[in-house]
Amino acid sequence: MTATRPPLLEVEHVTMRFGGLFAVNDLSFSAARKQITAVIGPNGAGKTTLFNCITGFYKPQVGRMALHHDDGPVLLERLDDHRIASRARVARTFQNIRLFARMSVLENLIVAQHQDLMKASAFSLAGLLGLARYHKAEKKALERARYWLDKVGLLDHADDEAGSLPYGSQRRLEIARAMCTDPVLLCLDEPAAGLNPRESHELNGLLTGIRDEHGIGLLLIEHDMSVVMGISDWVVVLDYGRKIAEDTPERVRRDPAVIRAYLGEEENEDLPPEVARDVEEDS
């Protein structure tokens, strides 16, 4: 992160309370452009809540969230959820997949391009009258949809009902749909959940591809440590709503505080002996 250019996303002192429960507690971190920033933590640590704050579904009681575009910052806490997607260009996926299940795969991707199509069609009037202007915009939207269908390997299923796809394909479709909104920041809530190892491996390729080819920032919630360690550039660790560590993947996995909070079983084996003893005594 250079001093001259602020990071893509700056989260400062964000607190989200539900009654007496601090789901996110005085959290500050930043996410860089062209990097995958992983947010990890045990169940109930507040990861999804953090995403809901960033994408406007919750309004945090305290804190500031700034998204730095090339033409200046956008303060996310001031925008409605749909404006965060359209104005700030933050896209997201959901922990429990939210596709338009009874619409076709392709339609899901076209709906994601609603803003552009709406503008081009003058609120559908141009389309109703069958003007050429609308056809051009629709063609462009189809091209983009085709590109992403190809990327996620669903080109052959374009006309299938989204709800009828196998689980892994639905996850990928949700990512494709989010990318069709042309975001600068993509937030993924456990994209590898429920995937088999092969699918999970393909997902890694897809995500690093998005980072390297499209130059956007990714924010990634993930429980699967092979994904986190494999592809993320920076890791933020939450526990009970607080940030307990923030570092590169290699260093985070050796951080005693992290290990204490986040007892990933598969990590235990390759712990340094002194840390392993630490953990043993703690539990």
């Binding site: 959820d81 404006r83 997607a85 959901f94 939210r98 338009f100 299940a101 009874r102």
Partner: peptide, 16 residues
């Protein structure tokens, strides 16, 4: 139709 299917997903895609 998208609204019928999932309002929250709609909002996450910038639909008002």
């Amino acid at each position: 139709e998208a609204l019928r299917e999932d309002e929250i997903a709609c909002r996450s895609l910038g639909l008002n």
